[in-house]
Computed example of a mutant assay.
Amino acid sequence: MASSAQLRLMSDLKAITSEPPEGCSASPHSEENLFVWSATIFGPDETPWEDWN
Rank of each mutant, 00 (worst) to 15 (best):
A15D: 15
A39R: 03
T47L: 01
E19T: 11
E50S: 06
G23I: 00
P44H: 06
W52Q: 07
S4C: 08
S3A: 02
D12F: 04
F35S: 09
D12A: 06
E46F: 09
R8L: 12
F42H: 14
L34N: 03
S11I: 08
A15E: 09
H29I: 07
P21R: 15
E19S: 13
Q6A: 08
E22L: 13
N33Q: 07
F35Y: 10
S11D: 10
E31A: 14
D51R: 15
W37S: 04
S38C: 06
W52K: 12
S18I: 08
S25M: 08
H29F: 11
A15C: 05
S30R: 07
P20Y: 04
D51C: 05
S4W: 09
S27H: 15
S25C: 05
F42C: 00
P21H: 01
W37M: 04
S30W: 02
D45S: 14
S11K: 13
L9M: 10
D45F: 04
E32R: 08
W52F: 07
S27E: 10
I41N: 08
L34A: 04
L9G: 01
S30C: 06
P44G: 01
G23Q: 00
M10C: 14
W52C: 10
S25I: 08
E19D: 11
L9Y: 13
S18H: 13
C24H: 00
G23W: 03
R8W: 11
T40F: 13
W49Y: 07
S18R: 09
P20N: 06
A15L: 13
W52I: 10
L13C: 07
E46G: 00
K14H: 14
S3H: 04
E50D: 05
L34D: 07
D51F: 05
W52G: 09
S4L: 10
T40W: 03
A39N: 03
L9S: 03
F35N: 12
E46T: 02
E22H: 14
P44E: 05
